[in-house]
Amino acid sequence: MMSDKPKITGYRQLTDADIDLMNQVKAKGQEMGELIDKLKSTDGLDQRWIATGATDIQKGLMCVTRGIAQPNSF
């Protein structure tokens, strides 16, 4: 296994495949963040819905990251 890597309290030891998946999620998050920034600076759009969508996207990314990491604590 990967016992030479430091353990994060409350999390199982991540495999290289897990880390790769998390990095893919983070890359998509960065991509979505850039799109949200573009939408925020576009006149004529309903910014309330843009903000709600941004929050929901952030929540979704956090959920899938937690699904990969599978923490054993609250």
Rank of each mutant, 00 (worst) to 15 (best):
M1G: 15
M1T: 12
M1K: 11
S3N: 10
S3E: 11
S3C: 05
D4W: 10
K5W: 06
K5M: 11
K5T: 05
K7E: 08
I8Q: 03
I8F: 03
I8P: 01
T9K: 04
T9A: 07
G10T: 04
G10A: 04
R12M: 09
R12A: 12
Q13N: 09
L14P: 04
T15D: 03
T15P: 00
T15S: 07
T15A: 03
T15W: 02
D16I: 12
D16A: 14
A17T: 15
D18W: 05
D18G: 10
D18P: 04
I19M: 04
I19D: 02
I19P: 00
I19T: 04
I19Q: 03
D20P: 04
D20W: 11
L21C: 11
L21P: 05
L21F: 10
L21D: 13
M22V: 15
M22D: 13
M22T: 12
N23I: 11
N23H: 13
Q24A: 15
V25R: 12
V25A: 13
K26C: 01
K26S: 02
A27I: 09
A27F: 14
A27R: 15
A27H: 15
K28Q: 13
K28G: 06
K28M: 12
G29M: 07
G29I: 03
Q30N: 07
Q30C: 02
E31L: 14
M32C: 08
G33D: 00
E34N: 12
E34K: 12
L35D: 07
I36V: 15
I36W: 07
I36G: 08
D37A: 14
K38S: 12
L39W: 01
L39H: 02
K40W: 03
K40V: 04
K40T: 08
K40P: 06
K40I: 04
S41A: 03
S41R: 01
T42E: 03
T42S: 01
T42C: 01
T42Y: 01
D43M: 06
D43Q: 12
G44K: 06
G44R: 06
G44H: 07
L45T: 13
L45R: 12
D46W: 04
D46G: 06
D46F: 09
D46L: 11
Q47F: 07
Q47T: 10
Q47V: 06
R48P: 03
I50V: 15
I50W: 11
T52K: 06
T52C: 02
G53M: 10
G53D: 09
G53K: 02
G53E: 05
A54Y: 07
D56V: 12
D56W: 10
I57S: 09
I57G: 05
Q58V: 08
Q58P: 05
Q58H: 14
Q58Y: 10
Q58K: 15
K59L: 02
K59W: 00
G60C: 01
G60W: 00
G60L: 01
L61I: 13
M62F: 08
M62W: 07
C63Q: 13
V64A: 02
T65N: 00
T65H: 00
T65Q: 00
R66Y: 05
R66I: 06
G67E: 14
G67A: 13
I68H: 02
I68V: 14
I68M: 05
A69D: 11
A69W: 05
A69L: 11
A69Q: 13
A69E: 15
Q70E: 14
Q70A: 12
P71F: 10
P71W: 09
P71S: 04
P71K: 02
N72I: 10
S73V: 15
S73F: 09
F74G: 10
F74H: 06
